[in-house]
Design a protein around this nucleic acid. Structure first.
Lengths: 342, 342
DNA sequence: TAATAGCACTCTTTGGTTGAGAGTGCTAAA
DNA sequence: TTTAGCACTCTCAACCAAAGAGTGCTATTA
């Protein structure tokens, strides 16, 4: 598609534009890069690149700026050529910064997100694993009010889920404890997904041996587990105050709106689930239509049960991929390491 | 201080400026308000008002805009003259909107905040009651990992507090249950503050009768209760996507930063704690220095134990106080009513 | 034949000028 | 005490011109 020279010039343009945020002209290229060609030749190549859709002119007498297609090509080139490597000093700092956190999983993720935002100067986001992939470790019912019970579900992955449920009859804490231990023996070690699949048939078969209370609580459990299968156990955003630095008012508004309702997270999760490693979305119109001018670098992480969430950054399309892709990648790796031992 | 005419003209200027967001000239006033005075007379009064610091001119040939002092005067006048009354239609909508929510306290507050943002078109915030004023209803320990215990503290007010604590010895769930019930009998009905005050002496006196485990867990409980006495159980922001409509980039940045670290909430809580009813902060430099151009209308609400939190809005200093003060006030009342019955 | 020097052309940017308009303060008169 | 009249100040928008940047095209060169 593109011969070596065109490739080189395209990358030079994008590189320069990322650094300086101005349209790049032919003369500039001859000065900055050792291509040993005259501006006129560069111009010819540029005309061709424009024809192919990789770059564009804001107006007749300006230099060229990359198009979305251009950025995509550039990012792919970076990845293919393995020109990505993290600054080891930064790497150390990153590790230290994340390592000092406490033991709670959600806190570790939060810290990682903060650190990512700190180093990238952009908005950092983290998405937890899907709730339904989590393994149940412990279920506990706590008497909350007369006819309200607090159900606490602790997962193997370290998340804690509270839910208050209403019941028709009054039970004592002792009765609730009994029910808890029955359900623990039944559900322990299963994923929420599996429980959901089985709960309908298997438990109804046991019906005969259960007393009224347990049967009742199973119905409640069903309610918890059925409800919002995609509900996110926690979600993290950090560095929103970095937003104004790179986004327009309109974009800020859109991003904040997206953050406020969780639709965005779900879409995102859907987009990246199943993939591996670090991904770049140039122009995010496939996720939120109004976010065309923004890009995202995001990577998956895994906890000790190998259920994956995602962590990454949202910034301007004109961002320093060379630095940021390895940064996100490394952060996700550190996170995976931390979660696997905790 | 100000005679009747000056007062009237000042309010007319501020009112008009709030409506139109332009500097208000003398001629404009004679047209819009039935003062039966010539522009020249108005001008004289304006000159005096400017001298007194209530209004100012952006430049020589412009009309006048209110100063912070002017706004403060205006708001006080509104409150004194009882010119504030909520639109009953809006009131109904508000009630319905908040009423349909579920039973969880934090969800009720969240819904109220969303509604407030919806009707005000500004950023709505809510601050929960101080943790230390909450009454302990139930304490429960759940085995989490080998040497980690999940402590759940449910308050009478309806909040749920989770914390994972590490211990040196391995205990069975049965042992933990025993400890739970001991602590329940000891702490039930006390505020966290009281518990903190007593825990040191009173429990050490009981030491002799307790076995090793309970003693251990008391120490843990102490750790939970001592830590972060000002920690907020939950905090709510809604309508951040309304931010760009009234704030500059710089302000957005400051607000988002303030929201991200909780210092802001604590300062705020400190400012309003102990007061009653709805308050207006014109120019928020006493809370966050960089937020001079913004104002806040905030009111306290109480839960069924009469512990108070706060709910309000942050908007431009040039906001419609006439409408918004009663809106916030009413919302806080609705919230108090809802929380008292739940 | 590919690369280049030269050149006319286009478009943005900047600064300066100008006139209209808005609103004032002051003064003198009612 | 109020007001009409008026000169004054300042903003704002429009317009213009010159400078500058970068281009595409063409003729020339290695």
């Amino acid at each position: 598609m593109l011969d070596e020279r065109r490739k080189k010039i395209l990358c030079a343009i994008i590189q320069s534009h990322i650094d300086l945020n101005i349209p790049i002209g032919s003369f500039f290229i001859t000065q900055k890069f050792p291509v040993d060609l005259s501006p006129a030749t560069i111009r010819n190549t540029m005309a061709k690149l424009e024809e192919l859709g990789y770059i564009t002119q804001p107006h007749t007498s300006a230099g060229r700026i990359p198009t979305e297609k251009g950025y995509k090509f550039y990012v792919n080139t970076l990845i293919e050529e393995q020109t990505l490597s993290i600054n080891s000093e930064l790497s150390n700092e990153l590790d230290n910064n994340v390592l000092i956190t406490g033991r709670d999983n959600s806190k570790i993720v939060k810290k990682a997100t903060e650190t990512l935002s700190l180093y990238s100067h952009y908005l950092a986001i983290a998405i937890p694993p899907k709730t339904e992939d989590m393994t149940i470790k412990h279920i506990k019912f706590i008497k909350y009010e007369e006819k309200k019970v607090l159900a606490v579900i602790v997962s193997e992955e370290g998340t804690i889920n509270n839910k208050i449920i209403e019941i028709d009859k009054i039970y004592s804490q002792k009765q609730l404890d009994k029910a808890s231990s029955y359900l623990n023996s039944k559900f322990h070690g299963l994923t929420i997904k599996k429980v959901r699949d089985r709960i309908t048939d298997q438990l109804y078969r046991d019906k005969i041996v259960c007393d009224q209370l347990v049967e009742n609580l199973i119905a409640l459990c069903k309610e918890i587990i059925m409800e919002e299968p995609h509900k996110l156990a926690f979600d993290v955003f950090s560095g929103t105050s970095n937003l104004p630095d790179f986004a327009t008012m309109k974009q800020i508004k859109e991003i904040l709106k997206a953050i406020e309702d969780k639709q965005f997270m779900l879409k995102l999760l859907h987009q990246i689930s199943g993939t591996q490693g670090t991904q770049v979305f140039v122009g995010m119109e496939n996720i939120i239509p109004s976010l065309q001018e923004l890009s995202m670098v995001i990577s998956t992480y895994k906890d000790k049960k190998f259920v994956s969430g995602a962590i990454g950054i949202i910034g301007p399309t004109r961002m320093n991929y060379q630095k940021l892709i390895p940064l996100v990648d490394h952060t996700a790796r550190v996170l995976t390491r931390l979660l696997s031992v905790s």
